[in-house]
Design a protein around this nucleic acid. Structure first.
Lengths: 207, 207
DNA sequence: GCAGTTACGCTACGGGTCGTAGCGAAAGAT
DNA sequence: ATCTTTCGCTACGACCCGTAGCGTAACTGC
């Protein structure tokens, strides 16, 4: 579960009919299904409610609108992200980038993620929701990978705390740009070349 | 001008009343103005027409819909992009990245660009329009910068033609992710750190 | 059990936007 | 002057939005 949806009131009351967890799951699944079939712009909340088998009003009791709903629906796709321990920094990077690319290859992520990010440029609350439920989880992987590499002696202990932010923007940005803007797959070959570039830079001997 | 709007028919006829170029410019300017004030989702074509002082029908004769209109309106922002010749590869990179960041800092670019990219994941024609009128122009800068660096002897002559694509995705992706997802400014300090990372990689001695 | 409280499904509604059609007038080309 | 195309304007059905109101269902505490 994501944890980003509306809490019912101040501190969840223990009285009255409880909200159906089944309905939550059905709505989020229906949202992803609609994203695949219709894309962001043609997705309507009425249609999602019908697909999920719930009333439109039920949907509006949980989510404020299309933006929040899609953020939660897409966020679940990132639950599976984990950084593998493959023994070397290069292998670790390749592993996590491939996982990230696999998620972005799915149509429900492609059409949904960019759209909510676009909306978040004018909605601070939405941006925060995206940050906590999607971006932070990714960034944690970068931190883990670097800590591991430092323990192995592959990287010097870093003093600058903003270095992680930079690396994260480079890694995530490159994969997103490759898959969504250039519209080319981030396959193993590309990931290897990218990892090499990230490790040794432009100055490194070219392949 | 962008050159991406609808040609009137097969080969532009020379008879009848010609289309008003003034109207074109007014519509595109009004679109950017509406993007700033309303953002993508609340922007309506009727409102744009009113702002531009033209009839709604006039707008529909030129653009098929919101997507195409915004692409053209945003594309004009990238007309000013040029790679400066600063004498070294590092300085060249810093210069072009700062220019790119300056464009992405403008609200009409932030809210518009990501939205049309999101839409392009389900619309090949739109993606192609974005590619030719926005992306390719950026990529040309990367090519120029690399050619220049090779002439200076800073980079070895590259055999792999896909290397440019990779570098482009990394540079553009990092800047976009920094400004739109992390929502932090790509200022001089960040650009310097990024350029260093791009040149020497993670293995390079840390600051 | 029984009352109290909340969630649910359903229907209906005003308000807004979409994209198009139809009209007469305007602006050029020949 | 005539022909062709664009322009501004109005009007229209279709769709989606977000909410209100109602009766019913589910769960809690007495």
């Amino acid at each position: 579960m994501v944890g980003g949806m509306q809490s019912r009131t101040p501190a969840s009351r223990a009285t009255g009919r409880p909200r159906s967890a089944t309905a939550d799951a059905a709505i989020l699944a229906a949202t992803r299904e609609a994203l695949v079939e219709l894309g962001w712009s043609k997705l309507t909340l009425g249609d999602v409610a019908t697909r999920a088998g719930v009333a439109k009003t039920t949907l509006y009791r949980r989510w404020a609108g299309k933006n929040e709903l899609v953020v939660d629906a897409v966020a679940e796709l990132f639950d599976e992200l984990e950084i593998p321990n493959r023994g070397s920094l290069a292998a670790d990077i390749e592993g996590v980038v491939l996982q990230f690319a696999a998620i972005l290859a799915r149509p429900e992520a492609r059409s949904g993620l960019m759209a909510v990010i676009a909306e978040s440029t004018r909605d601070d609350a939405l941006r925060e929701r995206i940050r906590t439920s999607i971006v932070e989880r990714q960034k944690r992987l970068v931190l883990e990978g670097r800590t591991r590499a430092q323990a192995r002696g592959e990287l010097p202990p870093e003093s600058d705390p903003t270095a992680v932010d930079l690396i994260f923007d480079v890694v995530a940005g490159a994969v997103v740009h490759r898959t969504l803007v250039s519209a080319e797959p981030a396959d193993e070959q590309w990931v290897r070349a990218f990892t090499r570039l990230l490790l040794v830079g432009l100055g490194g001997a070219a392949g």
